[in-house]
């Protein structure tokens, strides 16, 4: 398992080295790509925040909410898991204006990707909450805690630790999905890549370095989530 990050790093440096070595004048497009990468990072962060909030609300509504809220949560989860991220993006971008709701492309991007990943996240949250041993609920009852308090102070913090690895995967899925926003005119990394490809025709170099940039961001996410995981596991062994 420790081999994996090492292997990835090796590939990063190899590809980056290869790419840089083969660039005649890579200054030409590096700044543009970095601009695009910054947009990608912003959308990723925004999307992750939306996803986590949507997932928590949907999971809790589905598990403990009154009937109408529960149906709403189920509808949200099934709808967003059942259709593609790109369809959702286009729907918010092209169809919402027909109903008089005009949003900035950036907001559409963050909302669509966040809600899409949030629907998958809701199942992650639900799984993690269910995995907390029943004795923890019983101890909370024995201490006369109201349900909401027990959920917030006792159950969720424990579920949190179990959620981190699957959320790491979801965040990477979200990062990958951000490339779609280039199709609704946002000049993210994927958009810049295509734009520069059309002007400079350095196809191999541009797409190689763009792939490496995405890889680098996803490594940052992986490392960040691993750190969070060790932090959360501190002092806590899953002992009833």
């Amino acid at each position: 398992m420790q081999l994996r990050p090492l292997a990835i790093c090796a590939i990063v440096f190899f590809t980056a080295g290869l790419a840089i070595a083969s660039f005649a004048n890579f200054r030409e497009f590096i700044p543009g790509l970095l601009q695009g990468a910054w947009i990608t990072v912003q959308i990723t962060i925004g999307g992750c925040i939306v996803a986590v909030i949507a997932a928590l609300l949907a999971a809790i509504a589905k598990m403990y909410g009154p009937a109408p809220l529960r149906w709403l949560a189920v509808a949200y989860i099934e709808l967003f898991r059942g259709t593609s991220a790109l369809v959702q993006l286009f729907w918010l971008f092209f169809v919402l204006p027909h109903f008089g709701i005009v949003l900035e492309p950036m907001s559409v991007a963050i909302a669509a990707l966040g809600l899409n990943v949030g629907a998958y996240g809701a199942e992650v949250v639900r799984g993690a909450i269910t995995a907390v041993p029943r004795g923890q609920w019983e101890a909370s009852v024995a201490l006369n805690m109201p349900r909401k308090l027990a959920l917030r102070r006792i159950i969720l913090p424990q579920a949190f630790a179990a959620m981190i690895p699957p959320w790491g995967n979801l965040f990477i899925e979200l990062l990958k999905a951000t490339a779609l926003v280039s199709l609704i005119t946002i000049s993210d990394l994927a958009f810049k890549a295509q734009q520069m490809n059309q002007t400079t025709f350095r196809t191999v170099e541009i797409f190689s370095i763009v792939l490496v940039m995405y890889l680098a961001i996803s490594i940052v996410i992986t490392v960040g989530m691993r750190t969070l995981e060790t932090f959360a596991a501190r002092g806590m062994a899953r002992g009833r």
Binding site: P133, G135, Q136, E138, A139, A142, I154, P157, Q158, A161, G235, M236, A237, R238, G239, R240
Partner: peptide, 11 residues
């Protein structure tokens, strides 16, 4: 109440 399996809050 005190439980057979303690049920302490591990966090």
């Amino acid at each position: 109440m005190v439980f057979q399996h303690f049920n302490l809050f591990p966090h």
